[in-house]
């Protein structure tokens, strides 16, 4: 069975060929059917361009994109069986919610009664049954988001693209929507591809994800792989927070002369631990404390769970960790 989306050496360069801006640079990517796939990265890393390459609003300057095995290089957006939930939702302001949702069916020529029935069905799925006659302007942010979702899903796309789908929502609503999206995706079995700059969102929702940096994929894998075994300093730093250890420090801790990553929550107070130095700051986190110490000129952070005895600032302490917590990175 072919993959839902496949990138083969895809590039999207802008500007003159002599000095191109490489928004996406020679990306290889395979998204399996039925996956909940996240594209994570800082702004300008190329993740949104990748999404637009799938929907067809950008065309690759090199390489090939396949959707369910079919080359889409000659297919415009409106003929791709792929739908998008836009970042600002892009609801049609002059149509009511029902017409917005039924729009995709209308332009494909479905009779009015049938498309309205389907639209209502889809609105029920996103808990907006009673809102069909409202205009988008009369809805809250969360409701608009769900209309955008219903409007895309009613077309039964083979791939649903979501561009920062939760970015405009407040924290509580965002967490509720995360669960809702996840369960919706399981129920419908449609491949979801979503773009986000929020690592928590990517880690908690996706079943596999790609981390983008400067137009390239820095690492691709499951959330657990990305978190525990970051391949590069960029990934270790961008996904979660991490102590990045230069080769000399790694070596002094018993590892090879390579960069390593040490997650703060893996460190604990240990009188015989290998990391020693004075405490420079203590910060209360609610679920614990964050302690900073200076080990031979390097700042090291540790997160101690609530209830642990806290050292005084300025005192010398030692920290230890389980051997497997020290993650060695291959990157030079």
């Amino acid at each position: 069975m072919p993959a839902a989306v496949e990138f083969r050496a895809v590039s999207r360069h802008f500007g003159p060929a002599s000095a191109p801006v490489k928004a996406v640079d020679a990306v290889d990517l395979t998204i399996a059917e039925g996956a909940f796939f996240a594209m994570l990265g800082p702004s300008g890393s190329g993740k949104t361009t990748c999404l637009r390459l799938i929907s067809g609003f950008e065309s690759p300057t090199a390489g090939e994109i396949r959707i369910f095995g079919q080359d889409v290089s000659a297919t415009p957006p409106h003929l791709r069986n792929v739908n998008t939930v836009f970042q600002d939702y892009a609801l049609f302001p002059h149509m009511n919610v029902r017409d917005n949702v039924a729009y995709g069916l209308m332009v494909k020529g479905m009779p009015r009664a049938k498309r309205y029935a389907k639209a209502e069905e889809m609105l029920a799925l996103v808990h907006l049954d009673a809102y069909g006659s409202r205009k988008p302007g009369q809805l809250s942010g969360g409701q608009r988001q769900r209309v955008a979702l219903a409007r895309a899903l009613v077309n039964e796309p083979r791939v649903l693209l979501l561009d920062e789908p939760l970015g405009a929502l407040d924290l509580k609503l965002r967490e509720a929507m995360q669960d809702e999206l996840k369960s919706l995706q399981k129920r419908l079995g449609i491949t979801f591809v979503f773009v986000t700059h929020d690592q928590h969102e990517a880690l908690s929702m996706a079943d596999s994800l790609a981390v983008f940096n400067q137009g390239k994929i820095a690492q691709i894998g499951t959330p657990a792989e990305i978190y525990t075994q970051p391949k590069t300093r960029f990934v270790a730093d961008f996904v979660g927070s991490s102590n990045l250890l230069p080769p000399t420090l790694t070596q002094s801790l018993g590892g090879p002369a390579k960069w390593a990553s040490l997650r703060p929550e893996t460190l604990r107070l240990d009188a015989n631990g290998p990391i020693a130095g004075p405490v420079t700051a203590i910060r209360y986190l609610g679920a614990g404390h964050r302690i900073s110490l200076n080990a031979h000129g390097h700042d090291i952070a540790a997160i101690l769970p609530a209830g642990s005895a806290l050292p005084e600032p300025g005192t010398e302490i030692r920290l230890g960790f389980a051997p497997e917590a020290l993650h060695i990175m291959d990157e030079a």
């Binding site: 369910f68 079919q70 889409v72 000659a74 003929l79 069986n81 039964e156 791939v159």
Partner: peptide, 21 residues
């Protein structure tokens, strides 16, 4: 199973494709 690409059905579809390219 539906395909990933819809066929161009009309002249409008073909013209849209042309403008897109």
């Amino acid at each position: 199973m539906m395909t990933a690409i819809f066929p161009a059905r009309s002249l409008a579809d073909r013209l849209t494709t042309l403008f897109w390219r």
